[in-house]
Nucleic acid binder design. Structure first.
Lengths: 249, 249
DNA sequence: AATAGCCGTTGCAAAATATGCAACGTGAGG
DNA sequence: CCTCACGTTGCATATTTTGCAACGGCTATT
């Protein structure tokens, strides 16, 4: 491990909580302010941070470039785009693409609904593990021991009356996802929205991403949503094919 | 300047061009692979990079978090949101918010058109300086010496038949922007789209951001677009007020 | 199935950088 | 105009970073 680098990246993380002065930042990593200044100067030269006025530092514009590049490098985005765009055009509902990376589920693409509606999700953001359809799809494909380990280390904050709130119930739900081949978010994440999700597989059959479709309950009841499962599965199959998956049966 | 940190950030920048092996990365910064490995291990622990299989590194998910936080820290986004959303709802056209940071113009917010249309712009991306309405608004407010310096150091790639392609013409255009109080992109950036932009001012009258509205030529001709200037200026005024600007007259 | 090659990984002595310090400069507020 | 707070600088010292040689693992070829 590199101590200087560790300190500098800690500074960047600290600036994620808002602009800070040199003094504050040197306190965070417990070094002399002249040391902190040198680190900030180097971060600034790479545009990871920038000066805001005379006294404050804040996050810099390189982060936008890098985040965009990080998204574009997720090949499954490109492979899945046509299929997801078509599902969005066909149904008019919000379609998400998410992947499981470093123990988190990240939205890596999103096609907005043509109906006016506000949703929490945003590309680059994490999806809660315990209550979203994409997370259930992704976690259900983990090897059983790993799945159990992850389920037991997760937190289960109740977000709606339907939220799953313990590991045992969650693991049972993941088992149902495995059996059915798709997942449901029965207003577990947001009260007024329900959602279905399905796996996108790679060349060796492994789940490389999840696609989901989210619908406001006022626009479609649960039965109506389930009627769209075949469309979702067809989309997931099409995207899987683009990712090199060929099913054996 | 911190050499280790500089090397590590160079690695991150290199990974913006695609996944790389340890060997490739150590070559980029001209150090022994054990040194590169140590830097990558530290970057990985902060989730700036992640391992992809056994042999490749790629950009990590911390970049999504940081980019999102970097956006949220731009206060003008929040201050301007209501006004920009209203303009978008009223007209149905794409509305952008951009700021001038570190010598670049960055889109920091965007409200998509309700009509189906594809645009280059994306939040977090840079806007070309020579041919977009937001860039003209932002650069026109620079002190004259600085404006001239920037105009003379810029490049002017021709993107359409209408693109401005030299500094002299560009400075004249910025002068017109200053006089009129708003900017126009007369299909200089994209052939089928034209665009108007206006300044959002801060408490001391300085331009802190630019708002723009982009319209396909097939939907509205140039005269029709100019007829929307009063709406745009009203939006810019409302947003400026939220940013602490009070005009003296 | 075994071997070779390639690439990632490790521990440690030597090389090199990072660090803290004291003093200075600047800007803002009283 | 003075004082205080915070950013900035140059340099000797302290500490980390570095490269090296050897090892381990994985994949491909024989």
């Amino acid at each position: 491990m590199s101590q200087s680098l560790d300190r500098a990246l800690t500074l960047v993380g600290e600036l994620a909580t808002g602009p800070k002065t040199l003094e504050e930042l040197s306190g965070v990593i417990d070094v002399h302010k002249s040391t902190a200044l040198r680190l900030l100067r180097t971060l600034e030269s790479h545009r990871f941070v920038q000066r805001e006025g005379v006294h404050h530092y804040r996050l810099g514009t390189a982060l936008f470039d890098l985040a965009n590049r990080a998204l574009e490098e997720r090949d499954v985005r490109r492979s899945a785009e046509a299929a997801l765009r078509e599902l969005n055009a066909l149904t008019g509902y919000t379609v998400h693409l998410a992947s499981y990376e470093g123990g988190e589920v990240i939205y890596i693409d999103k096609y907005d609904s043509t109906h006016p509606m506000r949703m929490y999700s945003r590309v680059g953001r994490r999806a809660p593990l315990h209550c979203t359809a994409v997370a259930k799809v992704l976690l259900s494909d983990l090897p059983e021991a790993k799945r159990r380990e992850v389920a037991e280390s997760m937190e289960y904050p109740r977000l709606t009356a339907n939220t799953i709130t313990d590991a045992t119930a969650y693991l049972a739900e993941l088992e149902r996802v495995r059996e059915r081949g798709y997942a449901m978010d029965n207003s577990e994440h947001e009260d007024f929205i329900h959602c279905i999700g399905a796996p996108i597989r790679g060349s060796r059959g492994e789940v490389v991403a999840a696609v989901s479709m989210s619908v406001p309950k006022v626009m479609l009841d649960f039965e109506g949503l389930l009627a769209l499962v075949p469309n979702l599965l067809a989309t997931a199959r099409a995207a899987s094919t683009e990712c090199g998956y060929s099913p054996r049966d």
